[in-house]
Write a protein that binds this DNA or RNA. Structure first.
Lengths: 195, 195
DNA sequence: GTCTTTCAACTAACCAGATAGTTAGCAACT
DNA sequence: AGTTGCTAACTATCTGGTTAGTTGAAAGAC
């Protein structure tokens, strides 16, 4: 055969991931994806059906990979946050794609069951750890997980104007802020020294 | 005069804010903005020049309003976070517009001086409060502000799949999670009870 | 071994509708 | 009569999506 269908699909997914991460769904250009993937535009429609479905294919694969890569450790949430942070540093497009998904796709789409289930499992794991006294019960498990996920992504969700204020920051420093913040959340309640 | 230029511009800005918040810059439709504003499309180009410049006008006004409305109280960061949260609840489009700005506009645009200056001022205020012993010095001032801003916006930046896990949450509960989390950050360092 | 049929992978050209931006002129108030 | 606000119609271009046709490897026929 002249070509390799699987390889072509992979090139298309990769090119699409780049394109969607950079421009979003509305901003992405199908021709550009085909060009970068060294494939013909018609193949996108043959393999994936539409621009939106191509995005879904990209996003689903990304979700699957991400969920596989970062298992939770309820007994050490600071380090879990740190590993999440590492994942975001390693593949910055993941955060951007997730944000585009939230802004552009989420309301016209049923929630992805894989994500719901994965988060539910993590909440249950934290609840279990709370019952065993391994984790603070200052926050409900679902709230605590939300806090951890938010803090792990904090440096990617901040306004670009903020970057000038933290120019000297190394990746290690940013990671330390994340883990330290989560550590503070799970520390036992104690006296508070003002705001 | 047949019309009122200022009123028309205001209607355009408001319609554009809605449209951009919902669809982003690439996804927004100039015709739809004109329709909603009950104005003619040509006026958009007359008053603002281009679609991108219209977005900038919307965003700049939004930034000005927001900065005016929520002054910082470095001595009570939990309550500051709470007030930020209240602002986001009151005008959800603010967060969305800021996110679109970050994703679509930020790299092709110089950082907005007003935002940089406002944040710099807040960092300085926190540093001052730290010197006076009013605020924890566990985190550098710029990091602490980043944490507070991130936590105040946490419920808007979380993935939509998470919503099923926190269905029962009232606005008050979400606010409490935010303020409690910031309170934990600024609490004095103490013994830690696991993760 | 070679001829031929088949079929998946691929391509180039095309299309219809959408979209940002323009223009020429009208309407009303001073 | 001039100026300002406004309008409807228009255009050039872009863009997602389609289609008719080509290529080339391989499997079966002889």
């Amino acid at each position: 055969m002249a070509g390799d269908a699987q390889a072509t699909q992979k090139r298309l997914i990769e090119a699409a991931a780049q394109e969607f991460a950079a421009y979003g769904i509305a901003g992405a250009r199908v021709d550009r994806i085909a060009l970068v993937a060294k494939a013909n535009k018609a193949q996108i429609y043959h393999y994936f059906g539409s621009k939106d479905q191509l995005f879904d294919a990209v996003f689903n694969e990304l979700v699957a990979t991400t969920l596989r890569e970062v298992p939770i450790d309820p007994a050490d949430l600071p380090e879990y946050a740190g590993r999440l942070f590492d994942g975001f540093e390693r593949r910055p497009e993941v955060q951007r794609l997730a944000t585009w998904y939230r802004l552009e796709r989420a309301d016209s789409q049923v929630p992805l069951d894989s994500v719901v289930q994965a988060n539910r499992g993590k909440v249950l794991a934290i609840e279990q750890a709370q019952r065993e006294g391994l984790v603070t019960d200052r926050f409900a498990a679902a709230d605590l997980l939300a806090l951890v996920l938010t803090l792990a992504a904090m440096w990617t969700s901040i306004t670009p104007e903020y970057h000038v204020l933290i120019e000297g920051h190394t990746s290690e420093h940013r990671r330390h802020v994340v883990t330290e913040a989560v550590a503070a959340l799970v520390a036992v309640r104690d006296t508070v020294a003002g705001g």
